[in-house]
């Protein structure tokens, strides 16, 4: 073997070694979910054991996984859809009809993401209580939409800006109005970017725990609340806790692997094209 090939092989091995370390905590959690409670706390931890679904059965028996999962799906996709509907026109006008204040406007929008959400929890909680939105899917959908809106606008803006203005001008020459221009030219051209933005918004909403724990109790509680319910009172039942966590992250891991390109682009806020 020549030296360059040896070097390549070593680099590849090292790269997969790092990948193993990075993935190990997730792998270990999935594995623990298939253990009995006894095996889960055995020292030293065992890599080889007889897999059992007991943890999963108990989790399913105690909490209605499907109800939590359905809440997660409705809320994260609903909020993403709403955010896109509000953000697309904003991003369009910022990208194609910029004014002196466009940068400032974006900056102010993004600055709201820098503030800790605890700071506004009290007023939102009181408002929701008075409007009867506590523990409702609608309430959480609205909060998540507002939470992700600055990021969605900003990402769409960067994608829209990459589209040459000439293409839209050509459409206008052919008599397309603003609406047709957006529907038939801009949206198809930026569809990959919109998909990544949407995926990011879905992932962020899916993982959100602060608002879901504070604004829901049972009816509208999503999967993060599901994990938390196994975490606080009996943090010592590791097999069950791992099974519950695995159930909560499995959809994202699988969906993410299938849409790798979109996921990478979304999670890097559009930096990776």
């Amino acid at each position: 073997m020549n030296p360059t090939m040896t070097k390549k092989l070593l680099l590849t091995l090292l790269a997969w070694g790092i990948a193993l370390i990075v993935f190990f905590p997730i792998f270990w959690m999935v594995l623990t979910g298939f253990k009995t409670e006894g095996e889960a706390v055995a020292t030293p931890p065992s890599l080889f054991f007889e897999p059992t679904l007991a943890g999963y059965h108990e989790v399913m028996a105690r909490a209605d996984y499907l109800k939590f999962a359905l809440n997660s799906i409705v809320i994260s996709f609903g909020s993403t859809l709403l955010a896109l509907i509000v953000a697309i026109p904003s991003a369009y006008s910022m990208a194609f009809l910029p004014t002196k204040r466009t940068r400032g406007t974006l900056l102010w929008m993004l600055s709201t993401k820098m503030l800790p959400p605890v700071g506004v929890l009290m007023p939102v909680y009181l408002l929701f209580r008075d409007m009867g939105l506590l523990d409702s899917q609608l309430g959480l959908t609205i909060v998540y939409m507002l939470m992700n809106l600055p990021i969605v606008v900003w990402m769409l803006y960067t994608f829209f800006k990459d589209i040459p203005k000439d293409i839209l001008e050509a459409g206008r020459m052919d008599g397309a109005g603003t609406l047709q221009e957006v529907l038939y030219l801009l949206l198809p051209l930026t569809l990959p970017g919109i998909a990544s933005t949407g995926l990011l918004s879905v992932i962020l909403s899916w993982n959100e725990a602060f608002w879901s724990l504070n604004l829901t109790t049972s009816d509208a509680a999503p999967l993060t609340a599901f994990i938390a319910s196994f975490s606080s009172p009996e943090g010592l039942f590791w097999a069950k806790l791992s099974a519950a966590s695995t159930l909560a992250i499995a959809p994202i891991l699988i969906f993410g692997w299938l849409t790798q390109k979109q996921m990478v682009r979304g999670l890097t806020f559009g930096a990776v094209k």
């Binding site: 993935f23 997730i26 899916w206 993982n207 994990i227 992250i249 994202i252 993410g256 996921m263």
Partner: peptide, 14 residues
């Protein structure tokens, strides 16, 4: 790259 990025897709709770 996807594997290195995976943790970012997890909830902080997890």
């Amino acid at each position: 790259r996807t594997i290195y990025l995976y943790p970012m897709a997890l909830s902080l709770i997890v």
